[in-house]
C-alpha cells in the first residue's frame, strides 16, 4: 500500500491526479483562449507537463515502468514539437504574417 499524504481517503495519487488535471486545463485554456501562436505553444508545453505528472504517479501506483517510459518518450516528442513549432512561427514572422493564429487564413480562402 503506497504511503498517503493526507489523513483522508484522498491519497497522494489523487492529489497528483488533481494537479495534473489542473495543469492540463490551464494549458488547454491557453491554447483555446490565447490567439498568439507562441502563447499557444506555451500552453501545449503545460498540457504535456500535466500529462507527465499523472503518468509518473500512476506508474508508481501500479509499479509499472512502462508509464515512466511513456513520460520519457513524451518529453522527447515535446522537445521535437517545440523545435518544429518555433521554426514555423519564426518562418511566419519572416513572411510578414504576424504571430496571431487569426492571421493564418490561406487554407480558409
Amino acid at each position: 500500500m503506497p504511503p498517503r499524504l493526507l489523513p483522508s481517503p484522498w491519497g497522494r495519487e489523487v492529489n497528483a491526479l488533481a494537479v495534473g488535471l489542473a495543469l492540463f486545463a490551464a494549458g488547454l485554456a491557453a491554447v483555446v483562449l490565447r490567439g498568439q501562436l507562441l502563447a499557444m505553444l506555451l500552453g501545449l508545453e503545460l498540457m504535456i507537463a500535466g500529462v507527465s505528472v499523472i503518468l509518473t504517479y500512476e506508474a508508481g501506483v501500479f509499479g509499472d515502468p512502462a508509464g515512466l517510459a511513456a513520460v520519457v518518450l513524451i518529453i522527447a516528442i515535446a522537445a521535437a514539437e517545440a523545435v518544429v513549432g518555433l521554426c514555423l512561427i519564426l518562418g511566419l514572422h519572416r513572411a510578414g504574417l504576424g504571430g496571431r493564429a487569426g492571421s493564418l487564413t490561406e487554407l480558409r480562402e
Binding site: V19, A22, L23, A26, G27, A29, A30, L33, R34, L42, G43, L46, A49, V53
Partner: peptide, 9 residues
Amino acid sequence: AVFFSALMV
C-alpha cells in the same frame, strides 16, 4: 505549479 500555470494564461 497550479498558481503559475493559471498566471501564465
